[in-house]
Design a protein around this nucleic acid. Sequence first.
DNA 1: TTTACTGCAAATATTTTGCAATATC
DNA 2: GATATTGCAAAATATTTGCAGTAAA
Lengths: 157, 157
Amino acid sequence: MNGPNSNTDLTQKLNDFLEVKQMRKTPERFAILDRIIDIKGHFTIESLMLEMENSKFIVSRATLYNTIDLLLEAQLIRRHSIDGMPTQYELANTPPHTHLICTVCGKLKEVRDNNFIMFMNTRKYTAFTSRYFSLYVYGTCSTCARKRKRKQLNKKR
Amino acid sequence: MNGPNSNTDLTQKLNDFLEVKQMRKTPERFAILDRIIDIKGHFTIESLMLEMENSKFIVSRATLYNTIDLLLEAQLIRRHSIDGMPTQYELANTPPHTHLICTVCGKLKEVRDNNFIMFMNTRKYTAFTSRYFSLYVYGTCSTCARKRKRKQLNKKR
DNA sequence: TTTACTGCAAATATTTTGCAATATC
DNA sequence: GATATTGCAAAATATTTGCAGTAAA
């Protein structure tokens, strides 16, 4: 369990980042990263706040926002801004994935699409150096599609 | 000036939508669409509010939010949620485009990428019906890249 | 000892909501 | 005339900021 993105590796990465930037290694910063590693998947400031409380490591909202900015800068997490939802974050130790968003129920699903990633790697933009990208596909998930169909049938009587 | 997406055409589309949905044709709804057509490009609730004030057609914020929801539903506008910026909207009468976002200065640039659109049209997702998609590419624009390079040279002295 | 960082509370920004007044149908 | 829609003001939500106290270096 010590691959290139193991937990200790991520902690080490934060450690190195703080050293290079000459910033302080506070327990809050490491505790927050630890919780994020445990979460596995997307989270919001609010859900992370709750996770922290559950783990009995209480931090203030201000510190949470500050630390999230720090982890973004260190490229340890990614941010996702999705229509009509609070800002979501996730650990950046997995390859980028496509996000399928159901506009009916708001459910979010991630899919790995290697063809898409390969395609994106061929893209070059003039006067712009790309660092990362986010693809959001909006539509209807199968559950909601079924519900809608049923509703329409009822209408027709 | 009467192409498939001329101003009169968009107004007509709103008209039809309201008729089908049996909703009221209030002057506010048409005035807001008119302003959006004039803006050409991205706008926020705030900037649209100002545009309305300039055009002497004052509407309340609540009405703006309501109407924006309506226009989204009618697929007359698109919404863009972009990291660290207020929600942006734009008229939906142009083909979808890639958004290049400079993470240094926040500037947003649209590019037409027909290859990307063609590629996306080949994508199928299991248990999900896609309706539209948004691609955001985050990186550094040439202006900021130049500035950064200069800054680094200065540091080295 | 120095000062970066945390926590708190207030400020700001964005969006939603309840309700009375108004205008469309 | 009935009621969908507007405007207003208050509430809810999300994020930022100033400052005093704390703790990392």
